[in-house]
């Protein structure tokens, strides 16, 4: 776990503070969960301001063993959760990660983060011409309807 934290710090060091970021993330939050929870869901609004499609290639959540892209499908009132390979956003388009739909699944926390704290998430996006790392500070909070 120490190695993983060092990797996270190292990645933060190399994140370019570019003025031409194509991916912009807003309103990121992690649903607060009780101690002992094995997974937490993260939600956000992702805007691809660039002209071409960008796809996520890796996601790291600090303090969690791994982070995956998951989608909830509800058909005939049966909820099914499926792991997706990545998040792809067409150029000049945006996507919302919301309860009951697309979300990040943050798996196996070292310690379940408390309400009103923050979770750092790194999302790596790329296409054939460009690569970008987005650093997100997601608020840990309850759901608001």
């Amino acid at each position: 776990m120490i190695r993983k934290s060092l990797l996270f710090l190292g990645l933060l060091f190399f994140i370019p503070h570019s003025a031409i970021s194509e991916i912009v993330v807003k309103n990121a939050w992690v649903r607060a969960a009780p101690a002992g929870s094995k997974a937490m869901a993260a939600y956000m609004f992702i805007d691809n301001q660039g002209p071409k499609k960008m796809s996520s290639s890796k996601i790291i959540a600090n303090g969690f063993e791994k982070a995956e892209v998951h989608m909830i499908f509800i058909s005939n009132n049966i909820a099914q959760m499926r792991k997706l390979e990545n998040i792809s956003i067409d150029g000049k388009e945006s996507i919302a990660l919301e309860p009951g739909g697309l979300h990040l699944m943050l798996i196996n926390p070292n310690k379940v983060p408390k309400k009103n704290s923050k979770v750092e998430i790194l999302m790596f996006f790329e296409n054939e011409n460009n690569a970008e790392v987005v650093r997100i500070e997601a608020d840990v909070r309850s759901q608001e309807l």
Partner: peptide
């Protein structure tokens, strides 16, 4: 189930 991260808490 309590490890359900999305639908159940919603």
């Amino acid at each position: 189930y309590t490890n359900c991260p999305d639908v159940c808490p919603s």
